[in-house]
Simulated scan of single mutants.
Amino acid sequence: MYKVIGLTGGIASGKTTVSDYLKEHGYTVLDADAYSRKTTAKGGPAIPAIIEAFGEDIVDADGELDRKKLGSIIFNDAGKRRELNAIVHPLIRDMMNADEAEFIKKGHVFLDIPLLFENGLNERCDLVVTVFVDRDTQIRRLTARNDLTIEEAEARINSQMPLTEKVERSEYRLDNNGSVEKLYEQIDKFTEELESL
């Protein structure tokens, strides 16, 4: 029987590295962020409601969403973040559910969802894997990757459930504080167990 596996973590914890490795090894990974980008792309189904909620200047002259501007709003205002999530999340869920129903017939399906626990989507998974790092590593990676100040990085991290809580609530944990090779070893061990379930 094939499983639906929730894959989550915190921002800059290394979830994408895990996703990419799983895909390279033939697993289906449905990435909530990719679906989110589809819904918020130029002409995407979420754009009219986002303009209505955040104003005309949230998109540029070409109709592209100003993601940096939107990010600076939602990561500093929980109410605005909830408003955006209420627009985008149902669209993402519909797309993911359709693809999941198709791919589960052929093999295990990983749902790569940063806000898996926050949105209660862990309930529809057979098991959950959390990729984690310590907070200092998270801040260091996020400031380097996204060219953010420490304060901006902390605002983004604080907008999510603490990684320690996600780890506690997960069936499997992948420690990404070390080398990428060590991370790959843990993924290999997990997938071996998965195939023997």
Rank of each mutant, 00 (worst) to 15 (best):
141 R>C: 08
189 K>F: 08
39 T>Y: 00
169 R>A: 14
173 R>T: 13
46 A>V: 03
87 I>D: 08
174 L>I: 15
93 R>P: 00
81 R>M: 15
143 T>H: 07
127 L>H: 02
91 L>Q: 03
36 S>T: 14
60 D>G: 10
162 P>V: 04
129 V>F: 07
37 R>C: 08
151 E>D: 15
148 L>E: 03
109 V>A: 10
101 A>H: 09
168 E>D: 10
93 R>L: 13
152 E>S: 07
150 I>N: 08
85 N>S: 12
82 R>D: 14
3 K>P: 01
44 G>E: 07
189 K>Q: 12
61 A>R: 11
78 A>W: 00
168 E>T: 04
35 Y>P: 00
4 V>G: 01
125 C>W: 02
172 Y>D: 02
34 A>P: 00
160 Q>K: 09
51 I>Q: 11
179 S>W: 10
170 S>G: 05
38 K>I: 13
186 Q>C: 07
109 V>H: 04
95 M>V: 00
116 L>P: 02
147 D>R: 13
129 V>T: 07
47 I>L: 08
62 D>N: 15
141 R>G: 06
175 D>I: 05
119 N>F: 09
86 A>T: 01
43 G>N: 10
70 L>C: 05
145 R>Q: 13
44 G>Y: 10
86 A>G: 10
30 L>K: 04
191 T>A: 06
110 F>R: 02
109 V>D: 06
118 E>R: 09
181 E>L: 12
178 G>C: 07
21 Y>S: 07
114 P>K: 07
181 E>W: 05
134 D>H: 11
134 D>R: 08
162 P>N: 09
84 L>Q: 06
120 G>N: 09
148 L>K: 05
73 I>K: 04
111 L>P: 04
51 I>M: 12
153 A>P: 08
193 E>W: 09
20 D>G: 11
17 T>D: 03
23 K>G: 01
92 I>P: 01
47 I>F: 07
99 D>S: 11
104 I>E: 06
77 D>K: 13
60 D>M: 08
68 K>W: 01
124 R>N: 06
157 I>H: 07
117 F>A: 10
60 D>Q: 09
77 D>N: 15
58 I>P: 01
112 D>R: 06
89 H>D: 07
49 A>K: 12
75 F>C: 02
2 Y>D: 04
90 P>R: 02
3 K>R: 14
100 E>R: 15
80 K>Q: 14
115 L>F: 04
166 K>E: 06
26 G>D: 08
51 I>K: 14
102 E>T: 11
133 V>E: 05
93 R>C: 04
114 P>N: 10
195 E>I: 03
22 L>G: 10
42 K>Y: 05
143 T>G: 11
117 F>Y: 15
133 V>W: 05
146 N>R: 06
105 K>S: 11
33 D>W: 13
114 P>E: 08
145 R>I: 03
40 T>Y: 01
106 K>V: 11
2 Y>W: 12
11 I>T: 14
133 V>M: 08
59 V>G: 08
92 I>Y: 01
180 V>E: 14
33 D>E: 13
43 G>C: 10
110 F>S: 03
13 S>V: 02
31 D>E: 12
71 G>N: 11
92 I>N: 00
